[in-house]
Design a protein around this nucleic acid. Structure first.
Length: 817
DNA sequence: GTACACTACATACC
DNA sequence: ACTGGTATGTAGTGTAC
């Protein structure tokens, strides 16, 4: 038997003290496949130097002889091989120790590490599935050919009868064939409940959406559209939901925040009713893994919590102020959630229920559409990093980088470094900060005729070009070594590239390749690939400075930042001496005035600058701008860093750092500031802006501004009890809890500032803060003095306009400006 | 009762 | 706990007067 299929997920099981991997996938004609592959894991023993042939033979025998018992199993070593390997770039003699059962690896390696010939053990902390994918090259989301016998009825204790697949095969050989794309069958779901606290209330309805399915299941019997299916009770509803999954046979079951809410809720209710959640393809129940966020895993169907993927892969590109389904869907799909005011189910009217069903359905529809939109990105990450979808949709950036490294080390014959243990993590976290990026001190003014250069993937290209990594760092100066001066010492790195730099170099090249390919052929997969490589490249620098990294190297991170400062300052000097004038720079970007130079001359300069840069470092033109404005800091007369606004030649505004882009300012202040920045940059003066602000202040004084524009949103970043200083949002959060409203860490708390009680001493802001729908008159003075004026004051200051001119307390007249 | 320095906190930039 | 450092700015807190 031989067939072509595409792996979507992996797991493993024991049978008769042997371990087997199950590779779950699909054939091109849509059949579900489970390929069972015998596999034994191994780890490495790195031997001491100066061991002779005889010594090695002796230690190999000793390792082979390790026998023990653990959890009722016989524990033994299956095989020992001698290999010449590399560890951290240096040649080592090592033993590859294959164990009977992956779960017994710790027991065996504990015994082996005490042999006198053994220096260290490594790779006992590599996940079994990761190891399987690396060694057997059965890669996720790439087509493979598998050959072997079909699973017999009696194999593995009758597994055949449990597996819900079209083909189960005992794999003898699996090999990659092609890279053709694959479109999965996706089913999205969403639940609505009585209480937001898991297990407290009941589930009122469940929506499920796939290509040919749009359903809302409920046991609340109220008039509804045809897509609503009524169930006997909550238990019946959960079972029907599971049976729809069984019928639809999706590759992926997708929710939005379903790891944190929908799945654990379903489990709690299923347990309460003593019913099974029969979703998995092997008869097992969803497995909930402990962690920062509990993730829930199904066998044979990939459960994806889209929120978690969006959080790591998209959030930096999104304008949305929260990562809630509504905002994210609005931004990515142009379509948001349906309006519905949540009440306790006892208070919902007949027509209210109809709306509620519709609302619930729409959430699943949005999740379904978002999953379709994100599919190419998830697939690109899975193929590039070579980890299954389940993992790459939940991994953080540092884990993605690390997994990429693990899956590529074999190209360098490298044994992987270990993950840091608790004590080491603590030590790393105590470390004092190293010096980071250089930020240019701007001179506040309105400038005309600017250009911006920036380094492409600057930190990554510095690491790749200069070999800055753990394995290439030298303890002391050697000839031919690169010397980088840090704050308290010098760091040295070899001229010969190590695996980290070479991999990063490859990542940057692939990014360039797919970016160019996308320009020729703008399809989603090319874009997704280009983007995934870009994100990996950008995270590589932070990875080396991250306390949890296997290849942690703080000197490499510090040296990267030091070289970045050097190159940035070098380019600043060269632009200035060319005859342009640098007005601002931050980390890897430089803004300068063209002065009397033409655009062509600037482009020629760029080319000249590039020819002087080493390795793969590259500077590019970001854009030309008509005008730009920099303002003073509120405290002190210096120009503020990280705050500016630019107008490009298409009259598009680019605002950085200003209150306009900060979500913790009220919309009125943000809109007013954005408007005057736009006017000033387009008009070249502040005349109409001044009038505009004066009018807004007048309106505010006459209470003509709607309260919604005055709502301030601040995120609750930790548990209320942990706050040392109680800000207005904390007070409001407490008030919300007292009112029985749901409050969770991470929530955006909304409030407005109302008039004080007028009695005696000045009230604190938090004492005047009220919930958006709480009765009260807004505090005019607060909004003028603490929102509008601070947002525009420094901008007007550039034109010599003072606060008094804005609020009408000035002697000067408008025409004087 | 208020002015002031300092700290806590949130959020942005790259 | 889940990339890094640099930076601005508000409101709260404690203390001096």
């Amino acid at each position: 038997m031989e067939l072509k299929f595409i792996p979507l997920d992996y797991d493993y099981f024991d049978f008769n003290n042997e371990t087997f991997v199950r590779v779950w996938g699909r054939t091109a004609d849509g059949k579900r496949v489970c390929a069972i592959d015998a596999y034994n894991a191994y780890f490495w023993l790195i031997l001491k130097e100066n061991l002779g042939k005889k010594d090695i033979e002796i230690v190999m025998e000793k390792v082979k002889g390790i026998k023990s018992e653990f959890a009722g199993r016989k524990v033994y070593v299956k095989n020992v091989e001698f290999h010449e390997k590399n560890f951290l770039g240096k040649p080592v003699k090592a033993l590859k120790v294959t164990v009977s059962n992956h779960k017994d690896m710790q027991v065996i390696s504990e015994r082996a590490k005490d042999f006198e010939e053994v220096k260290i053990r490594r790779e006992t902390d590599v996940s079994f599935i990761t190891r399987y994918i690396i060694e057997k090259k059965v890669l996720p989301l790439q087509w493979h050919s598998v050959s072997g016998e079909l699973l017999g009825e009696k194999d593995f204790g009758g597994m055949f009868n449990i597996l819900d697949v079209d083909i189960a095969i005992k794999a003898e050989n699996i090999s990659a064939t092609s890279e053709d794309n694959f479109l999965p069958k996706i089913m999205a779901f969403d639940i609505e409940t009585d209480s937001l606290e898991i297990g407290k209330g009941s589930i009122l309805m469940i929506s499920a959406v796939s290509e040919n399915l749009k359903k809302v299941l409920t046991w609340k019997k109220f008039p509804a559209e045809g897509y609503v299916e009524f169930c006997k009770d909550e238990a019946d509803m959960i079972e029907k939901f599971c049976s729809y999954i069984k019928k639809e046979k999706p590759d992926a079951l997708v929710g939005y925040f379903s790891d944190g809410f929908d799945m654990p809720y379903l489990r709690a209710r299923a347990e309460k009713h003593k019913i099974k959640m029969d979703i998995s393809l092997d008869g097992s129940q969803p497995v909930f893994a402990r962690g920062r966020i509990t993730s829930s895993r199904l066998a044979g169907i990939v459960h994806i919590d889209l929120f978690r993927f969006i959080e790591t892969a998209y959030s930096q590109y999104l304008q949305s102020e929260t990562l809630g389904l509504n905002e994210v869907a609005l931004e990515l799909l142009g379509e948001g959630k349906k309006d519905f005011e949540h009440k306790h189910s006892a208070h919902i009217t007949h027509s209210g229920w109809k709306q509620y069903f519709e609302y619930n359905l729409q959430d699943a529809v949005l999740t379904y559409k978002l999953a379709g939109k994100a599919w190419q990105d998830m697939a690109a990450f899975s193929r590039i990093i070579q980890e299954p979808l389940f993992e790459i949709t939940r991994d953080r950036m540092s884990q993605l980088v690390e997994n990429y490294l693990l899956h590529n080390l074999h190209k360098f014959n490298e044994i992987a470094e270990k993950r840091p243990l608790h004590d080491e993590i603590e030590e790393r976290r105590m470390r004092k900060k190293y010096e980071g990026a250089f930020v240019f001190q701007p001179v506040p003014a309105l400038y005309e005729n600017l250009a911006m250069f920036d380094f492409t993937s600057m930190y990554a290209s510095i690491i790749a070009t200069h070999n800055l990594s753990k394995s290439t760092q030298l303890e002391k100066k050697e000839k031919e070594a690169l010397e980088v001066e840090l704050e308290e010492h010098k760091a040295y790195f070899t001229k010969n590239p190590g695996f980290f730099s070479l991999m990063l170099n490859d990542i940057i090249n692939k990014r360039k390749k797919y970016k160019q390919e996308y320009k020729k052929n703008p399809d989603a997969m090319n874009f997704a690939r280009s983007n995934a490589y870009k994100l990996l490249a950008n995270a590589a620098y932070g990875y080396q400075g991250f306390f949890g990294a296997r290849y942690y190297c703080i000197d490499a991170a510090a040296a990267t930042a030091a070289l970045a400062r050097k190159f940035l300052k070098g380019v600043i000097d060269k632009i200035n001496s060319f005859g342009c004038k640098v007005v601002y720079a931050d980390t890897d970007g430089i803004a300068f005035l063209l002065q009397d130079k033409s655009k062509q001359e600037v482009l020629n300069l760029l080319e000249k600058l590039n020819s002087g840069l080493p390795g793969i470092m590259e500077l590019e033109l970001e854009e030309f701008y008509k005008r730009g404005i920099w303002v003073t800091k509120r405290t002190g007369e210096f120009g503020a860093k990280k705050k500016y606004a630019l107008l490009n030649e298409k009259n598009q505004l680019k605002v950085r750092g200003f209150e306009t882009v900060r979500r913790d300012w009220c919309n009125l202040a943000r809109e007013v500031q954005n408007e005057i920045l736009s006017r000033i940059l387009k008009e070249g003066n502040a005349t109409s802006s001044l009038k505009f602000v004066q009018d807004v202040i007048k309106k505010l004084k006459k209470r003509e501004i709607e309260k919604e524009k005055l709502v301030i949103k601040t995120q609750l970043k930790k548990e209320i009890a942990e706050y040392v200083a109680e800000g207005p949002h904390v007070t409001i959060a407490k008030k919300m809890i007292a009112l029985g409203m749901p409050v969770d860490t991470g929530m955006l708390i909304e409030y407005y500032i109302a008039e004080g009680n007028g009695k005696g001493k000045k009230q604190l802001v938090r004492e005047k803060a009220k919930l958006p729908d709480e009765q009260g008159r807004y505090d005019i003075t607060y909004y003028i003095e603490h929102q509008i004026v601070p947002a525009v004051e420094n901008i007007f200051e550039v034109f010599g306009i003072t606060k008094g001119d804005l609020t009408g307390k000035s002697q000067k007249k408008l025409h004087e400006f």
